[in-house]
Design a protein around this nucleic acid. Sequence first.
RNA 1: CGGGGCGUAGCGCAGCUGGCUAGCGCGCAACGUUCGGGACGUUGAAGUCGACGGUUCGAAUCCGUCCGCCCCGACCA
Length: 426
Amino acid sequence: MRWSKYFIPTLKETPIGAEAVSHQLSLRAGLVHMLTSGVYSYLPLGLRVLRRIENIIREEMNAVGANELFLPCLHPLDLWKQTGRDKVLADVMITFLDKRKRPMCLGPTHEEVITNLVKDYVQSYRQLPVVLYQIQTKFRDELRTRFGIVRACEFIMKDAYSFDRDQIGLKKNYDLMYGAYKNVFQRCGLETVILEADSGAMGGDVSHEFMVPASIGEDLIVSCSACGYKEGAAEEKAKEKPCPKCKKKKLASQVAIELGHIFQLGTKYSQAQGALFIDEDGKQKPIIMGCYGIGVSRVIAAIIEKHNDDKGIIWPPQVAPFDVEILPIQGAEEDREIRNLTDRCDADLTAAGLEVLVDDREETAGRKFNDADLIGIPLRVTIGRRNLAEGKVEIKVRSTNEIVLVNKDQLAQKVLEMTKAACVTN
RNA sequence: CGGGGCGUAGCGCAGCUGGCUAGCGCGCAACGUUCGGGACGUUGAAGUCGACGGUUCGAAUCCGUCCGCCCCGACCA
């Protein structure tokens, strides 16, 4: 991909109003654009990151037997009345009357819709278990948005739902999801703290939150340095208390971003909506459900929050919008060698399956270097006269600042090696 | 929804105790010189000063109302 033909509107200065690092960098690196508070467009670079994260999620979901589908955003409010959640979620639901005067809403979540769907198709225990998921836009009319895409009114979520005939089946699927979630966040370059949590408006008994401690966040984790005890605190005061487990030390607190939440729902929705099946014993029973969410757009913010320096973003290789950026430096003279080498390297790496960005803009070297640091592609190949005079090309690792000089004939091969090594390490 | 901050060109800002043609930096366009860490010169384009109302001979500037954005809190799968 040629930068000159791609839409990467980087900003030199930090836009007013952006205080969180991830918010600043997502705007400056040309990942997202704000339409209004809590409503963001994803620009080409941001969309690439989003797609890579989505694909990691898809791989992990598919690996535990979940099937992808796609549910509507537009819901009749009557459906929500069946569970009473039209009232429970009234504060965040965007509701309106359509042209036929029917009360409608934009889906803030999809338990009702998926239960309605499964109810129509599943009648027998022989059809269970079923695990379905989607990656889709959710709408929540947040009174207070926060930190750019961390808390938005329109955001992208992966939501999965499991349907089982009994508690044992639910537990099994829940554990599978738990493991899949660990993999997803690990592959995204994030270290998560997993906590048992309240089920809140979702209902159900058991639930776990996947949190990433960061310098911003809406949740508070308190932990004990003596015994490792951790919990999510509902209030600031919790940290002043001694550890409830070992009683030795006071708890230390840390804000965190909640990226995932999984729930054992039980029969709350199936009961209310009549999603029943005939079990082996001939009796009619409500399907046992679980639900599993990941704030996909929020994952982007968390990754930036954890992977940056004063110059910009440092993408973990697995989620980077491109694998390598080639940066040819324009010489005063028309330099055919630089151009040819750039084209060849681009072609070879693309053929080998890498996503390659070539900064072919007619800009000074300094500007290209700064933009490269800002958008944070893992590897940067600089092709310029200085090193080329000795037949060498420079490869720089964004995360470590390590610089490798290679023979120009071994360039593509070396980049491939380094890319592979980086992905294995992470 | 309570508290605080902000709103002037695409971006970042100055001007604001009322006064002349609204300015600076970046960016943008053209030409020339540059070219390994945000180069330089010359010329140029770009503004409902967030909106509406009021005070006044005169409002970006003072007063009122509203709108928008950000932060803290409350709230929140």
